[in-house]
Simulated scan of single mutants.
Amino acid sequence: MAERVAACTACHGKEGRATADGYYPRIAGKPETYLFNQLQNFRDGRRQYPTMTYLLANLSDDYLRQIAAFFANEHPPYPPPAPTGATAATLERGRLLVTEGIGARRIPACAACHGAALTGVQPAIPGLLGLPRDYINAQLGAWRNGMRRARAPDCMAAIAHELTPEDINAASSWLSAQPAPANPAPAASLPAPLPLSCGSMTQAAGAVR
């Protein structure tokens, strides 16, 4: 399988650990169902990136599951976070948004879904640490603009539509500046129900189609 995913690691780095270009994300160690969902989303047009769509266009669900399983079981070390040029005020705004949310605007904390350690939650919620700032910005912007979608109800789209550009910059600046914890594995479960209904999680709880 390592030879078959050479096209993936050409962009996502050895073992899927990401590269230093600031855009391609780490996929190593992400929950298997999350990776499978995203491969389907690229193949089926819910996510927009021509190279990914081209690579996946003719691959079956079974093959996508094999790819997802391969990278979910890769666990290379996390690099130290890249230096940030954000101000202290921006970083504090990002910390509050990520860890507490903005109740007055009905924006839940990132940690409410992605786990208290921000390393993701099984079976289908990704970690947010170890991702480049530019990648986080691009994905939140894509959700705001309708260029990235997930199965309905699309909880991330609903949240992203409430975020201002300043919110996105603050959250991405703070997240990208955080080191990975000693144990970066996704949590087995959340301590409380999700604050919003998410189609990808609803599907993950049943049979994967």
Rank of each mutant, 00 (worst) to 15 (best):
N169W: 01
A182V: 15
R43G: 00
V5C: 06
A7C: 10
E15Q: 12
C8A: 01
G199F: 01
A117R: 13
A205F: 04
G13F: 00
L128R: 03
A117T: 12
P80K: 10
A138W: 03
P76K: 09
Q38C: 09
A177L: 03
L59I: 05
R46N: 09
G22Y: 08
A104R: 03
L39H: 08
R149T: 09
T164V: 02
A205P: 00
D154K: 10
R144D: 07
P132G: 10
G141Y: 15
C113W: 08
D21V: 07
P83W: 03
A117G: 05
T84G: 12
C155M: 12
I102E: 15
A138F: 00
A192M: 02
N73I: 14
C11P: 14
I107G: 04
A2S: 10
P126E: 12
I102N: 13
H114K: 03
T99S: 11
P79D: 09
A180F: 00
G206T: 02
T119R: 02
R148S: 04
A150C: 08
Q139D: 06
L59W: 12
A69E: 14
K14H: 07
E100A: 13
S200W: 08
V98I: 06
R133P: 05
A112Y: 02
Y34W: 05
E3M: 07
T53E: 10
P126M: 11
F42R: 02
G85S: 11
Y135M: 02
A68R: 04
T90N: 00
P181V: 09
Y23R: 11
P179C: 12
P76S: 08
V208D: 13
D61T: 09
M201K: 15
K14N: 06
I136V: 13
G199L: 05
R151M: 05
G94Y: 03
L190E: 04
C198T: 08
G85Q: 11
P186L: 08
P184D: 06
A89H: 06
L35F: 06
T90G: 08
P153N: 07
P123Q: 07
L190T: 05
S172T: 14
A28S: 15
Y63L: 13
L64N: 06
S189R: 14
K14T: 06
P80G: 02
A18C: 03
T84R: 09
A10Q: 13
P81T: 13
R17K: 15
A6N: 00
Y24P: 00
T51E: 04
P81F: 13
C11R: 14
F70C: 01
A104S: 06
A112L: 02
A7T: 15
F42S: 03
G29D: 14
L59F: 07
Y78N: 07
G22A: 04
R46F: 03
L118T: 04
V121W: 07
A82T: 14
C11W: 12
A89K: 10
A150N: 15
P123G: 14
